[in-house]
């Protein structure tokens, strides 16, 4: 199945940093709307580099990238909230930077806050939020401009296991609802298989895609899916591919 018009096309991408570090080599894949693609790989293999190239934050050295830069939402590894702004002011920031008038951006922010289940915390400052709530705020901030391509850089790496599972379920629910194109970086195989339509395995540096797994489970996915034998089997396959990639 090939849905129309991919949101992101990597065509034989390579990246060598100015200091000579070859971060990735010959990476090709596409992400279309309605696809949620996870990339797993050893740390330092160039996963963040991949996202920074996709978003235009850095220039790649080889190959070509096709993407609509205006429609990108980027969820960073840390929540990167501005400490001096309340939850709602943080969530409004992207709309503010794009010059959207106050009444409209307040509405956009409120919708996003409701969507991630943070209503009631609009006036809180980041210092009084838990790690999970900060990450939700960061998610809401990315949702305000309704991007068509979501880039996630190990967003849930710093929160505890239970919170991470909750956030996985909500991300999966958001994806099912909005049907954006998602590119999700993680080093957790369970997280990747639970949320994705496809999981890509990257090799150690210089990173290449060494395996690709289609994940067939229907959305919305039930938390109990994690105990399904088919789920465990897929995780084992990804894990084996990852181990041979080191």
């Amino acid at each position: 199945m090939a849905p129309a018009h991919p949101a992101l096309i990597f065509d034989h991408i390579g990246m060598t940093y100015a200091n000579g570090t070859q971060a990735i080599s010959d990476v090709s894949f596409q992400v279309s709307p309605g696809e949620f693609v996870s990339v797993v790989g050893p740390s330092g293999c160039g996963k963040s580099t991949l996202l920074r190239i996709a978003s235009g934050l850095i220039r790649h050295s080889f190959g070509s990238v096709t993407v609509e830069e205006d429609k990108i939402g980027y969820v960073f590894q840390d929540a990167t909230l501005l400490d001096w702004r309340t939850v709602e002011q943080n969530v409004q920031l992207p709309a503010e930077l794009h010059g959207i008038a106050r009444p409209e951006r307040e509405k956009l922010a409120q919708d996003a806050i409701n969507l991630v289940g943070l209503s009631g915390f609009e006036k809180h400052y980041p210092k009084s939020l838990s790690g999970g709530m900060k990450m939700r705020t960061s998610l809401a901030r990315t949702l305000t401009l309704k991007p068509s391509l979501f880039l996630f850089d190990e967003p849930f790496g710093a929160v505890d296991e239970i919170t991470r599972e909750h956030l996985n379920e909500e991300t999966q629910r958001l994806f099912n609802q909005e049907r954006f194109a998602g590119l999700f970086i993680t080093h957790s195989i369970g997280e990747a298989v639970f949320m994705s339509t496809r999981v890509l395995v990257m090799s150690a540096r210089p990173g290449r895609i060494v395996a690709s797994f289609d994940i067939p489970f229907e959305y919305p996915r039930n938390p109990d899916l994690r105990f399904d034998p088919a789920f465990a089997e897929l995780c084992a396959e990804v894990s084996a591919a990852l181990r041979s990639a080191y």
């Binding site: 235009g56 934050l57 980027y74 960073f76 840390d78 920031l93 930077l97």
Partner: peptide
């Protein structure tokens, strides 16, 4: 990260 956000 915050700078990247403003750059984006």
């Amino acid at each position: 990260g915050a700078h990247d956000l403003f750059t984006l």
